[in-house]
Design a protein around this nucleic acid. Structure first.
Lengths: 220, 220, 220, 220
DNA sequence: CATGAATGAGTCTTCATTCAT
DNA sequence: AATGAATGAAGACTCATTCAT
């Protein structure tokens, strides 16, 4: 490996090369923007290519179909992250109450407040028309998400911090508020009529408080 | 129904007249079913017309475009059941805790489990494409709903049954679980991966319990 | 039903109606011409529609796909005729020798010399690229054709007119010359280098003579 | 292979030079295989290049277009085996009956059963699209072939072995069965519906028998 | 009023060909 | 000479909308 003084070794000197490696990323970014803004069906592949500064043909060089492009967007922005979250979960040393609060907060910062949350709304809309995508999303996002929450609740129960609850339904004590916020954000006041008086952070706090009130074993 | 004296009941004019006036209704009913089942884009006007027993051309006689048909469906179906609920609310004599439980339960029976929930999902999906409809829906449905919940919470606080909470965000303690259920039901396991192990009534119970745990003033 | 003096009862008075009934036929004719001239893949559906004087959409109103259009062309021009040929065969009262000659001659007039023979060449070319079409053609044309010939040979053998031969290979004594002629005609001298000195009728005669020389039981 | 003394065997110039000159040949070989297997349109230039172990760009370095590549393949592969056959014909000492049988048999072994028959089918398919090629093929292949057969028949007539026939049409008594077999083989049962019950050698035998039955002067 | 035949713009995808490196 | 990333024209098929009858 060359000394740090010379040119960065892993930066190809050729323009071509550099562009080539950047292409998929640029395309994924453009696709994320457009899918979230207009939905899957309404987004034209030409547009995605144009936004990424390439021709339609080039897009198909990297992604064999519009559906595969979408899957790649989902992998890039959501499913690929569960691994790191699992690690964080396993390594967490505080109380389960702290863990749950941390999750609410972190989820909001890393997912809810980003464009990725638009993908959830999109899936809800298009699931009927694109069953294969729905299947994919369920496997790659929905089920891992449920598992994550389930493990948190189980941890609390195992350590005697949480009441014993029916996991099957209790996961939605956590998921429903998060999903709601994710759907409410990009929906033109359809869920939240006065966005100006609404503070996501406060919402997150309140929902976490509330869930914990219900879950925590009461210290009499 | 005209008396047998007035005119022969099968007089063409009468029949045609009556059928003519029934047409839009039949079309709207068919459209509601199909839009809810398949979404806006995936519903073909041919199908709507066929379900209503008329030809495609006739549909366009009553509704100038597919979009206008959609608007008419929403206008027809989402309207003021709020009046009756307001009356129920005002006349309720039990505790606020009972009232809130009653609301969860009643909402599920009268709204959540009906086609209306399909319309809510539809609105969410198409809000971007129909800003005008979104505005309409917000005024006619979303705001009255928020107000209703707000009044219930206020009642509990006024009577010393509920803790003092920030109403602006607390309404979502109630609305988020309901919305989630409404969206989750018709969405191919996208929200609820194992529908066979999921019981809406149990979900409603648990969520109501949980909200109340969080809201009720603790009897020390 | 109106009296025979008035307008012909089964001729629709409306232009629309008349055109509607003519459409499939016009499309099939145009398709036959173009398929034979340019091949299946190289023929554009727009062109077919234009030749029939309608728009692309109209074509798809009558034929759900390009492949189905092709199948309809084949049915119209070839497979639909086996029924009548079978009847002729069953009703034939002459010697098997006469029957075979009659077949050679008739086949040439009704199939070989018409555009339909172009379809055979087409199938040969496109079979690899359109397996489904190949399968269809085999079922609808090739196998019935083989059966027909087989029955003729069997008749000759049953009546003691023809030598006993292995049917499985003997059918090609008849089919090979016919196929060759069918392929040779539209192929720019690729099979027959001097078309000007070539007379199909004479070819047919000679081939029939030859086959019969080989088949007939020799009157010692 | 250069001797080890002359130059280092892995000298770039030598290697590159030799490989460079081998390129077109490798490409032509790959193209022959693929064209014969999949037809002209269905063969992708990428595939041809890949089979030859070079990149797509390189192919276009040697052949300016797919069509030119096709022409080159035909030119390369269909050439004068006729010279050697002429010699064999002239030197043949047996009866004309034996000669004709020998031809049927030999043609099958040396041409019919080889890739060359695939090229014939190709030519037939693409003749319309490549008039120039068709012309070339006619001159180089079709006419010599006709001549060969004509000479055999003439020999038989000259020696009093064959009946007097109209040569112009009689050549097809021989050519039609051969052509048919050549086209029938690689065509997915389009000509021969039950390939498992079909034996080319038996076909050849039967056809030769049959032609001779028709040709031979009858020993009364 | 009602029909339904006709339209044609719009979309994804393929692949021969080019050209900067 | 060789590469392979990029191009863009072309084609089958759909479906909301129109309009002559």
């Amino acid at each position: 490996m060359p000394s740090p003084h010379s040119a960065p070794p892993d930066t190809p000197t050729t323009r071509r090369g550099r562009r080539k490696e950047a292409r998929p990323g640029e395309l994924l970014a453009a696709a994320l923007d457009l899918f979230v803004e207009k939905g899957f069906a309404a987004t034209r592949v030409d547009e995605v290519a144009a936004h990424a500064g390439v021709s339609k043909g080039t897009l198909f060089l990297y992604f064999p179909s519009k559906e595969e492009l979408f899957k790649a967007v989902v992998r890039e922005n959501i499913s690929g992250r569960f691994a790191e979250w699992d690690v964080e979960l396993e390594g967490f040393t505080g109380t389960s109450s702290e863990l749950l609060r941390y999750c609410f907060q972190t989820w909001w910062e890393r997912v809810g407040a980003t464009k990725a949350s638009g993908l959830a709304k999109l899936m809800l809309s298009e699931a009927n028309n694109f069953p294969e995508l729905a299947h994919f999303y369920r496997q790659e996002v929905v089920e891992p998400g449920h598992d994550l929450v389930r493990r948190i609740l189980q941890r609390g129960m195992d350590r005697g911090e949480f009441r014993t609850v029916d996991l099957e339904h209790a996961v939605y004590l956590v998921l429903a508020p998060l999903m709601f916020l994710m759907l409410a954000q990009p929906t033109m006041g359809l869920c939240i009529p006065c966005p100006e008086r609404f503070d996501p952070d406060q919402y997150i706090q309140l929902q976490a408080d509330n869930v914990l009130q219900g879950l925590l074993v009461r210290a009499t």
